[in-house]
Design a protein around this nucleic acid. Structure first.
Lengths: 335, 335
DNA sequence: TTGAAAGCGCTAACAG
DNA sequence: CTGTTAGCGCTTTCAA
C-alpha cells in the first residue's frame, strides 16, 4: 500500500499545522486581510499552495451568508428562443452578483418534475420556463422565491411574466386578413398541445377565426415537433389536407421557417402562393429567404423581468407580481 | 415598531422547538427518512411549512460532501456556437448528477479575469472557453480540476480540448482550390486577432496560401466583429480593396453568412462570382440561401469531452489530458 | 500581529 | 421510533 493515503480533504487546520500558525492566520492570509505580517502571509500562502489547499465553499458560505445562487430552468438551449432569455437572466443576475445554475428539461414532464424536486435544495431563488403545472407547484411550495417565465395566464399564486399572446395574434391575423387571407392555417407545437398547459396561442387563433368568420377552425391546426424539421413535416401534412391554404400562422419562428422552406420546396411561392407568419422574433428570421414576418417578443427583457421579480421576492416574500410582454408585429417578406 | 422582528433565518432548531421534537427528528422528516412515525413526520412538516423553514444548503453541503458544482465559462450565449457546447456540457454534467453554473465573459479581458478570480470560490470544477491566457492561468493555479474548451495548441500544463484547425483548413482550402479558386480572402475575428491568443485559423490560412503559391497573404485578411453584421461590414471592406476576390474563407459561420448576404446584396452571385466557406457547422448554415459550405465541428462533443476531462481530474489530480476534434468538410451550395 | 473561543446549521452514528 | 453526541471547515468576535 502507498505511504500516503488520505482521501480526506486538506483543511485550514492542516495548513495551519504545517505552517505553524493558528488557523486564524491562515484564514487571514487566504482572504487577503490586512492584519497580518506580509512575510507570514507569504509563507502561509506558499504552504497552502503546496498542500493543494482549497477552502470549502460550504464552510465559508455557512458563516458568510452572502452568495446568492439563482436556478434557471429552461426547456432546451438548442432552441434559439432560450439563449436570448438566458442572456437576459445572466445579465440581470450578474448585475446583482448572483450565480446562475442552469437546468434543461426539454419540457418533458418527468424531467421537469425531477428538476423541480431538486432545484430548491441547491439554489436560493429560481426562475423557470415550465410547462407542467405540477412542477411549478412543487417549486412554489418549497418556499424559495420563484417566478415562472411563462405564466400563460395561469391563475396560480405565483409570480411570473405573461406574454400577451392574444394581442399579438390579433395583430398578426389582422395583418394577414388585411392582405386578403382567409384560409389561414395554424401549425401548432404538438408537445404543448398535449401537455394540458394553457394554450393561449391556439385559443386566440380559434377565437379570432370565429369572431372574423374565417373558414377555418380546429381542423386547420396541424401539430408539429418544435423544430424546423417538425415545421417541414407539418407543412407536408397541411398541404395534403388543405391544398388551398393561403397563409400559415406558426407556433413559433422555428416551426414557421421549417414550414416555409418546405412549402417552397413543394413549389409554392412565398408569399405569393402562401404567406408565413412566425412568433418570437428570432434573429434567425432575418437570415432566411424570404425574411420572416413575425411577432417579436423581447426575450432578453423577458428573462430580466423574471429576475427582477425574484429579487423583489427576496425582500418582500409572498408578493405575487406579474409583468406583461406585448408582442410586436414585424412585417418582412414572408407575408 | 413591528411585534415580530427577526431577520435571522429559521433554523432546524427553531422548527424542532416549535414542534416539540429533537432537531434530528426534524431532519428525518425533511429528508424523508424511514425511521420516523408518519404522524410525527406530518406534524413536523406542517410546522416547518408554516414557519417557512428552508434547510441551509451550506450546512447540508458541509456534512454531506456529495454535490458537485461545475463552472462553465463561455463567451456569449447569443453566439449560436455556444448553445451547442452548453448543451453538451449540460448533458454530460447531468449524467453525473452535477450542477452547472454558467458565466459569460464576452471574451473581454477584464471580464474573463474577474470570472477567473471568482469562479474557483464557487465551484468544484470548471470548464471554460477563455481567450486570455492570464485568465486560464488564474483558474489553473487555483487548483480546481479545470479543462479549457479551446486549448488552441497552447502548451500550458492544462487539460483541454483542441480543434484541429490546421487540418480543417487544409480540407476547406483544398476544396476551394480544386474548384479553381486562387484569390481566396479570409475574414477574421477582430477580437481574437487582437487578443494575442494563438490563432491557428489565421496561421493555417497563411501557411496554406504560401505552400500552394496562392496570390494572397496578410493583406487579404479582413477583420470583422463576430456577428453577421460584422461579416457584412467586412465584406464591403473586402470588396473595396480586392474586387477580384473569388472566394472567402470566414472565421466562422456567423461571419460567413453575414459576408455572403452582403456580397449578394452587392450583386455578386454565390457561388458563381464568389464562393463562401464557413467554420463551425452551425445549424443555421442549412437555413440560409444558398446553404453554407462549412467545416463542421461537433460542438456538443466538444463540451462533453471537456467535462470528461475534469471528471478524470477529480480522481486523477494533476493529469494533463488532451483530446482533439477534427473538423469535417460539409459541402453545400455556397461553394 | 497573532491566537483562542464560539458558533454558522445540519446530518451521521449511536444509544435509548 | 426518537434523542444525544459529535463533528463538517470556516470566519467572527474578543483577548493577548
Amino acid at each position: 500500500m502507498p505511504t500516503t493515503n488520505r482521501p480526506r480533504r486538506v483543511t485550514i487546520d492542516d495548513v495551519a499545522r504545517a505552517a505553524r500558525v493558528s488557523r486564524q492566520t491562515v484564514s487571514r492570509a487566504i482572504n487577503d486581510k490586512s492584519e497580518i505580517d506580509p512575510e507570514t502571509r507569504r509563507r502561509v500562502l506558499q504552504v497552502a499552495q503546496e498542500m493543494g489547499y482549497r477552502p470549502s465553499r460550504f464552510a465559508r458560505g455557512m458563516v458568510r451568508q452572502d452568495v446568492t445562487t439563482l436556478g434557471l430552468i429552461i426547456a432546451d438551449v438548442l432552441n434559439p428562443f432560450f439563449p436570448e432569455v438566458v442572456d437576459g437572466v445572466l445579465e440581470a443576475a450578474d448585475g446583482r452578483g448572483w450565480q446562475v445554475v442552469v437546468y434543461a428539461t426539454g419540457s418533458e414532464r418527468a424531467k421537469e418534475l425531477a428538476v423541480a424536486e431538486a432545484v430548491p435544495k441547491h439554489v436560493d431563488a429560481c426562475v423557470g420556463f415550465i410547462l407542467h403545472e405540477e412542477a411549478i407547484r412543487t417549486i412554489a411550495s418549497s418556499g424559495i422565491p420563484f417566478a415562472v417565465l411563462d405564466r400563460r395566464g395561469r391563475d396560480l399564486a405565483v409570480a411570473g411574466v405573461d406574454i400577451d399572446f392574444r394581442d399579438g395574434i390579433r395583430q398578426g391575423l389582422d395583418h394577414l386578413t388585411e392582405r386578403g387571407h382567409r384560409r389561414i392555417a395554424m401549425i401548432d407545437d404538438r408537445a404543448h398541445a398535449l401537455s394540458g398547459a394553457p394554450h393561449a396561442r391556439r385559443a386566440a387563433y380559434l377565437a379570432y377565426a370565429r369572431d372574423h368568420g374565417l373558414p377555418v377552425g380546429e381542423r386547420w391546426i396541424q401539430p408539429a415537433d418544435n423544430s424546423t424539421e417538425g415545421g417541414a413535416a407539418a407543412m407536408d401534412a397541411l398541404l395534403a389536407e388543405h391544398p388551398d391554404v393561403t397563409a400559415v400562422f406558426a407556433y413559433n419562428d422555428l416551426i414557421a421557417i421549417g414550414a416555409m422552406r418546405q412549402a417552397m420546396k413543394r413549389g409554392r411561392e412565398v408569399p405569393g402562393d402562401c404567406a408565413f407568419l412566425g412568433f418570437d422574433g428570432l434573429a434567425l428570421g432575418e437570415l432566411v429567404d424570404p425574411m420572416l414576418t413575425t411577432l417579436y417578443i423581447d426575450k432578453r427583457r423577458f428573462g430580466k423581468l423574471a429576475v427582477e421579480q425574484v429579487a423583489t421576492l427576496m425582500t418582500e416574500p409572498g408578493e405575487v407580481m406579474d409583468a406583461v410582454i406585448r408582442p410586436e408585429l414585424v412585417v418582412r417578406r414572408s407575408t
